[in-house]
């Protein structure tokens, strides 16, 4: 009986905070998964080109 009371109190706690936590966790997980893709090669090339163009213009 004690056990059951404890569980339902825990459930009440989860019903609000738990749902919000799951949304936040999923969002972070999703974001981090994209972030971990790293920087696509084309962006590195682009920055390299922009840099070179600028240096050439200064000479």
């Amino acid at each position: 009986m004690e056990m059951k009371e404890e569980t339902s109190a825990g459930m009440l706690g989860r019903s609000k905070g738990g749902a919000a936590d799951t949304v936040s966790e999923k969002l972070r997980e999703y974001y981090v998964s994209i972030q971990n893709d790293g920087i696509p090669e084309k962006f590195l090339d682009l920055l390299e080109k922009l840099d070179e163009a600028e240096k050439a213009a200064q000479k």
Partner: peptide, 11 residues
């Protein structure tokens, strides 16, 4: 500094 920010910007 821009390179450092790119992964997050892309995400």
């Amino acid at each position: 500094v821009m390179l450092e920010a790119l992964p997050s910007l892309r995400a």
